[in-house]
């Protein structure tokens, strides 16, 4: 059985180590916060916050306290606030240990596309280009194939790039792969998924 969304998030949470400052993207990456367990992880929200807490209780929403997805959230006793220039200073400056984010396509050389589909409505890259260029480690969490069953792990990206050669590790519903010299390397297969099944579902070169 391939992993479901929560299992992918749980697997991604294993990438995080005690003491890390981490930025989580929208979608499955947001779920990663549910699986960090006892590890001391500080979440960064690029609109200007370190130490992001859970959603507020009903009636306690504060319009001045939102995450980068514009959702109401809460603060923790460790929270620090800062402006957007400072926020991206710490991102660009390599102070954030890891970003976990979704993707439309990843290429075998680590190219990432996740912000624009030509001909469709373009909403903008937000902070994604800064994050993938700046953080210590970029971990992509996404389905292995698109809704047509085509591989999202490609020899070359077809969509406009968010970053060139930026991805370190890819966690999909079928397994975990690293971007290495010459292509992708299988780190592990999802429970019940064979290495051959993973290879068959992948267009990118697996070495």
């Amino acid at each position: 059985m391939p992993w479901d969304r929560n299992q992918m998030a749980a697997r991604a949470a294993q990438e995080l180590e005690d003491g890390m400052y981490v930025n989580l993207g929208i979608g499955i990456p947001t779920l990663v916060a549910n699986y960090v367990g006892d590890k001391d992880i500080t979440l960064q929200s690029e609109n200007g916050m370190l130490g992001m807490g859970p959603f507020p209780f009903e009636g306690e929403e504060d319009p001045d306290l939102i995450n980068a997805g514009k959702q109401t959230i809460t603060e923790l006793n460790r929270t620090a606030y800062f402006d957007s220039a400072t926020s991206f200073g710490m991102i660009r400056g390599g102070k954030i240990a890891a970003a976990i984010l979704g993707a439309m396509e990843v290429a075998e050389n680590g190219d990432l596309a996740n912000w624009m589909i030509p001909g469709k409505l373009v909403k903008g890259m937000g902070g994604a280009m800064d994050l993938v260029a700046g953080v210590g480690r970029v971990i992509v969490v996404m389905d292995h194939t698109n809704k047509h069953g085509d591989s999202k792990l490609l020899k070359e990206c077809t969509l406009p790039l968010t970053g060139k050669g930026v991805v370190d590790r890819i966690i999909t519903n079928l397994g975990v792969l690293d971007v290495v010299e010459g292509g992708l390397k299988i780190v592990e297969c999802a429970d019940g998924v064979s290495e051959q099944e993973l290879r068959d579902a992948t267009e990118a070169t697996i070495i």
């Binding site: 306690e60 929403e61 939102i66």
Partner: peptide, 15 residues
């Protein structure tokens, strides 16, 4: 006015 764009909450019993 300070309008909220995405009002997200959790229920108390979830805590």
């Amino acid at each position: 006015e300070k309008r909220i764009e995405q009002r997200t909450t959790r229920k108390r019993e979830d805590a």
